[in-house]
């Protein structure tokens, strides 16, 4: 469980970083953001933006009114990683348009989270599972 203001703050920082990626067209900045996504998805406690929130901001704010589970946060970070990774490859391998489009998706998702508290990846998760996942097969005895 985590203070929901942490991921929201992280989304705001991510929004600024992704705008900077788009304005500069820097693949290396996109790579840095991809690394942040990957680390936060793997170890939410070690996410740099979350650490920034907990050390600088959280002590000045009151206690959170409620806590939220970590699974949606991790999933969202993993989705962010995919977009940031594609953006990185696009910019660094000489296809800046691919990079910009992928960066735009990451920007839109981060902005929706920061401004509206809406997790786009989480919203689309069930639709994705519906289209790809089969109903869980019943267990059958091995013969």
């Amino acid at each position: 469980m985590t203070d929901p203001r942490g991921p929201r703050f992280a989304a705001a920082v991510t929004t600024v970083v992704m705008v900077a990626v788009l304005l500069t067209g820097s693949g290396w900045l996109a790579l840095a953001q991809a690394a942040v996504f990957a680390l936060t998805a793997a170890q939410p406690r070690l996410g740099p933006y979350g650490l920034l929130f907990r050390t600088l901001l959280a002590p000045r704010l009151g206690r959170p009114a409620e806590l939220e589970p970590l699974a949606p946060v991790r999933f969202a970070q993993a989705v962010g990683f995919v977009f940031a990774a594609v953006a990185t490859l696009g910019y660094l391998l000489g296809s800046p348009l691919t990079g910009a489009i992928a960066a735009a998706f990451a920007l839109a998702a981060a902005f929706l989270n920061a401004a509206f508290g809406l997790c786009l990846g989480c919203e689309l998760f069930l639709a994705y599972r519906r289209l790809t996942g089969r109903p869980l097969a019943a267990r059958v005895p091995t013969s």
């Binding site: 705008v19 788009l22 304005l23 500069t24 067209g25 910009a100 489009i101 735009a104 920007l107 839109a108």
Partner: peptide, 25 residues
Amino acid sequence: MDQTGLIVAGVALLAATAYGVVHRR
């Protein structure tokens, strides 16, 4: 500054805002 990037960023932010407002409603 990257002109394309500026436009793409603007479009992304506008689209996200529209989605967020409709979603909230």
